[in-house]
Amino acid sequence: MTYGPTDHLSPDDVDAFLEGRLDGARREHLHDCALCREFARLERGVVDQLAALPPLAPSPEFPEQVMARVRVADPFALRALATARRRLLGERSAGLAAMIALTLLGSLASIVWTLTHQAVLLGAAHWLGAESYAVLWVGVRTVASNLIEQPWYTDARRLFTSPARLALTSAAASLLYVTGVLTLRRLLAVPAQRVAHAAI
């Protein structure tokens, strides 16, 4: 890439200069351009001052204070756990093979049982269907009879007696729903964050 005499150093070029890896063409520009030379000198000054800042030490008690709150894993317990695991499962590959064999055996047994007991399965399905239907029907009847006995039932029913009323009721319900959703969205919106923050 060729640069003109007014192509001053970019921030990346300044980084390269500070790290001593500025390429030939840019170095030449730096040599010829007093403006960039002065800028690079000032940047170098800031970086040198930062690098010269001494490391700061916490109090001498710091390591002990930390260690008092750290849970060091008990090596004997860890060893005992590893031994128990080895005894129980053997080697990892043997454990894996046993698990696969068990799964295959279980699946095979399930298929065989299903094929030889189709009548039992059909009977059970029929019984389950009939029972579910009965329970559902009783539930619907209970809810319906409870509703009809409510004092507000007759008034509420009038809302659906004509197409115009039905449309009006639907519109009001939709409006209420949309208002509710918008209010919830506003309440649950995440506030804008000014500071970038890393999470572990």
Binding site: P55, A57, P63, A73
Partner: peptide
């Protein structure tokens, strides 16, 4: 080694990083 329960390994991690971490936090 710390994961294997060696207490000295925990202390070594503290020794290595106490100054850089404290310096960053202080500043």
């Amino acid at each position: 080694r710390a994961r294997a329960g060696e207490e000295a390994a925990y202390r070594e991690l503290i020794r290595r990083y106490e100054r850089p971490i404290f310096s960053l936090l202080f500043r």
